[in-house]
Write a protein that binds this DNA or RNA. Structure first.
Lengths: 221, 221
DNA sequence: TGGCAAGATTGTGTATACAAAATTTCGGAA
DNA sequence: TTCCGAAATTTTGTATACACAATCTTGCCA
């Protein structure tokens, strides 16, 4: 693998996994030494992270890890609602009913297993990822897919904020199943409604999970 | 200005203005010589263009200018509809009514002047840009704004495809005014409806303007 | 004459050196 | 004591050199 790619993946996951806290300043030489490469690949990695919106240029002093706040989470979900309702509508029209029917069944099954408090959540997460991918494929829209990809990067970051909401997973699985079923039946309105319900609940769960700051705290450091 | 910035702006406008046709292969040394800089800034420019989606990596051999097709235009408008209806809804709730009222009036005025076939369209275009900026500001959502910015880059490219639709400009101005008025009045539903109408007409105008290819031609070279 | 292999050529990936810009610190003066 | 300015240091921006990979060409052999 190329050194620039390694540097990018390394820094990216470091940021998403909160090993690098929001507000941290990164400079080229420091990271070059830490990652054991020269400055050139680090520059390229910084450039990609900036266009991802994971870091922002600090005036003449490297880059700083983008802060995450409750305000940001609300904004993310506003965009997410717009993107996912559109994607679901397209998938309901163009998608393969059988594929989504199968997903709906597997999600219902997963929901049953999730009754158990220490069930393996990873398989459920994979299932959700599979469904996202299937919707993207069905929507046949690269621009929409790219916008979703970018947003999911940021959503991945806030996921760490809302730990301990395992109790919601079963409900979430049922909601996902409802979405898949609506898409399978080609019911655009229902699919969009199901998405809105799901996202409303998901946002509420996140906002409940974070210690209620008055909306303007810069980071959860 | 930095050399990498110059290289980026130069290549970007070259692609958007169709001086570099879709499908063209660009390599580092060639562009470095053409722009009179070394390979390093060109690499950075290529990297930014790739994340813009204006070029895509050719297998190990530089980058190629991303193709534009009718299919792509439809996809862009699907995403655009999702983003702009969401932005308009937020603006209708949070925006400054007076600012949008003023925009509505100026747009109606502009529409009057556009009756004349060879009126200055540039001031109208600036007005539309101003309105886009005002909506972005009112929506107070950086994620949404960034998604819009990226999409507008691609829309700027297809604008060149639909030349000779000056006849539609007056109608478009009235549509924009209707959107601004709905936002000023805080009427979310009406603003979204007005956006949908406008985008439907705009897409139709573009599809009418391009020689009707069966949807899969790679470029308009 | 056609196919395969080896060398040459072209182009990217990375490192390093040098230059330019900016920030910080230190010193002096008000 | 505080503020302003200049120098020094740190950090980024750019160029260049080198290494490796891929591709094209050419020549040899079947």
């Amino acid at each position: 693998m190329r050194a620039s790619e390694r540097a990018y993946q390394f820094l990216r996951s470091d940021i998403i996994e909160w090993h690098l806290e929001p507000g941290t300043t990164l400079n080229e030489v420091e990271q070059a030494e830490r990652l054991g490469v020269s400055r050139t690949p680090v520059r390229e990695a910084f450039s990609r992270l900036m266009s991802d919106g994971l870091v922002e240029p600090s005036c003449g002093r490297g880059v700083i890890v983008t802060p995450v706040s409750v305000t940001n989470v609300r904004a993310m979900f506003e965009l997410r609602t717009a993107l996912e309702t559109q994607a679901a509508a397209l998938a309901a029209v163009k998608g393969d009913p059988e594929a989504f029917d199968a997903l709906a069944h597997r999600l219902e099954e997963a929901a049953v297993f999730l009754v158990d408090d220490d069930a393996d959540r990873s398989s459920y997460y994979l299932l959700v990822e599979e469904m996202d991918a299937e919707i993207d494929r069905a929507a046949q829209n690269t621009y929409l897919a790219q916008a979703q990809r970018q947003l999911r990067t940021h959503l991945g970051r806030v996921r760490k904020l809302s730990k301990g909401n395992e109790g919601r997973l079963m409900a979430a699985a049922h909601e996902h199943a409802a979405i898949a079923r609506a898409i399978a039946e080609g019911d655009v309105e229902l699919a969009q409604a199901a998405i809105r319900v799901h996202l409303s609940n998901a946002l509420k769960a996140i906002l409940d999970a974070v210690p209620d700051q008055e909306g303007e705290r810069e980071s959860a450091a």
